[in-house]
Design a protein around this nucleic acid. Sequence first.
DNA 1: TTGTTAATGCAACTTAGTTTTAATAAATTT
DNA 2: AAATTTATTAAAACTAAGTTGCATTAACAA
Lengths: 126, 126
Amino acid sequence: MGIIRKTASIDLLLNEFEQESNAISAVDLIKRLDTQINKTTIYRVLDKLEDDGVLHSFLGFDGVKWYAKCKGCTKSVHKDFHPHFQCLSCGTVDCLHIHVNIPEIPNREVLFSQLLIQGKCEACAA
Amino acid sequence: MGIIRKTASIDLLLNEFEQESNAISAVDLIKRLDTQINKTTIYRVLDKLEDDGVLHSFLGFDGVKWYAKCKGCTKSVHKDFHPHFQCLSCGTVDCLHIHVNIPEIPNREVLFSQLLIQGKCEACAA
DNA sequence: TTGTTAATGCAACTTAGTTTTAATAAATTT
DNA sequence: AAATTTATTAAAACTAAGTTGCATTAACAA
């Protein structure tokens, strides 16, 4: 439904994403903001920020929800469509701004896809 | 650790996958075999069948675990590496036996990847 | 400044999956 | 074939992520 009123919770959450270029899991945000925002509120605000095209979400390999900043999305159109990368050594998760071609599949209509890649990030592969 | 003894639970579970060519979620198997096998056992047997290269697992869009038959995998090498497709209309999930090229990513080492595609299956796209 | 209602906190709940432990039953040995 | 070993099982309790209901609080428009 999107955000209507500017509140302290929203500022706190947005601030976390401004401080960090990587994706952040909901679980981690709950830990980080434990003393400041209730977890229900965190889930609700994240949900609204996603509706507004500010953040996008995806599931990690463990099924946990991750959020990252959108680039060029709006309330009506989520144009983001890129793979996400999880480093097996340090655990960081980030967006890969590369294009991966999803082939046409005979007789099927592709509406959405999610590509998750696991490996070693720049820092850990060195 | 793999399967050592042949038991009724294993037969029942393998039978489900012989009857069905699509993937089956753990949750669905628990429902189907509710009166016959305890859910703990179902999770454990699935885990062992995966170790043995009989089944492979992946997470669906909702984070729920799905299992499908392997083709040409062994206890030591899981060679399966293909996208999975979930139909938004009928909910079926299956393996796509097509090759999707995952591009090299500069300075990163790719070890594993998972591609999930959502859309309409053959039956529902018609 | 007040009234409306969006947003929040809290507690209770749901759901998928795991752990512990004692009982059961394959498979091996005698 | 009986005894033994130990993998497998069921049951109950638990964990962790995320959701729901509801009373309270606080944006913000009038």
